Computed example of a mutant assay.
Amino acid sequence: MGDNGDQNSRPFRSGFVCFVGRPNAGKSTLTNAMVGEKIAITSNRPQTTRHAIRGIVHRDHGQLVLVDTPGLHRPRTLLGQRLNDVVRSTWAEVDIIGVCIPANEDIGPGDRFIAREVAAIARTPKVAVVTKTDLIGADRLAQRLAAVAKLGEETGIEWAEVVPVSATTNDRVELLTGLLLDQLPEGPPLYPDGELTDEPEETLVAELVREAALEGVRDELPHSIAVVVEEMIPREDRPDDRPLLDVHVNLYVERDSQKAIVIGRKGARLREVGTRARTQIERLLGTPVYLDLHVKVAKDWQRDPKQLGRLGF
């Protein structure tokens, strides 16, 4: 009886948490682990995330809205500048900032740059999240945690918490969830129970295609790929027990040479991308899919304001 009384008297908390960090710090993998479903694409390529993606974590005593942002970086294109703008505008609107620092790498200039930027945001609690702990041993982890504490001292951040986690093994992910919830203000749920993201289905589908296209490509290509879902329509004249969704997608690259890379010899690579993406899309939407992919050239789109607008940036 006593336990139930304590549970019922516990205030419900809700709010927004933004994960920031340099590219490839494990932000998207952590977001997916906390939500319990894949809502953000992941890749070992920097700048995989291109807009703020919201994942919703439901608990009996609170609701955590995770905002996964692009990695803050030194921009070389107009796209890069706009991605950084997305990060900074998100910081200003959240209740907690989680700074992700990978455990398997030394703290570098990028981490210090982000810490200094975050330190300038007054009154917002900051939590240090030391990611990828499964890649190192206990001794090195202890050193990393000490380095993160020192980083806070050097930049004027008083960490509300320092939490080591591994999103791939789920180690301490639930602990982090609880600690973040405890930092949130009291308030009602912000989203209906069971909703995991507010991203439109077309956006999620486009991201899954881009993730599949990023697999195994050359170093110069990832930043040059943009994906737009042109149409998602149920196939007509299909019986109710055998539905089929036609999904028409355009992949944009910046040069003809990149188009050849994406398509591959006799179209082999594009077929692989389609097979990989279709599996993920069918799992997401819960229905069989016919995926129609086309590769087009939009010359230097990362630097062209008009083309960036057409591609959704």
Rank of each mutant, 00 (worst) to 15 (best):
G5L: 07
F12G: 04
R13M: 05
F16G: 03
V17T: 11
F19L: 13
G26A: 12
E37W: 12
T42L: 13
V57M: 01
R59P: 02
D60E: 13
H61L: 04
H61C: 08
L64G: 11
R74S: 11
P75S: 01
R76D: 02
V86S: 11
G98D: 05
G98C: 11
I101Y: 05
D106C: 08
G108S: 15
R112I: 12
F113D: 05
A120R: 14
V127T: 03
T131M: 06
T133P: 06
D134I: 03
D134N: 07
G137Q: 02
D139W: 07
E154W: 03
T155A: 14
I157C: 07
E158M: 04
T169C: 13
E174S: 07
L175W: 01
L180G: 00
D182G: 09
L184W: 07
P185Q: 06
P189I: 06
L190S: 00
T203L: 02
V205S: 04
E207C: 00
E207T: 00
A212G: 08
G216F: 14
D219A: 14
L221F: 08
H223R: 15
S224Y: 01
V227P: 03
E231D: 15
E231G: 04
E236A: 14
P243L: 13
P243S: 01
D256T: 10
D256M: 05
A260F: 05
A260N: 06
I261P: 00
K266D: 10
R269P: 02
E272Q: 15
A277Y: 05
T279S: 09
R283D: 14
D292A: 10
H294W: 15
W301I: 07
Q302P: 09
R303Q: 13
Q307R: 10
G309Q: 15
L311V: 13
F313L: 06
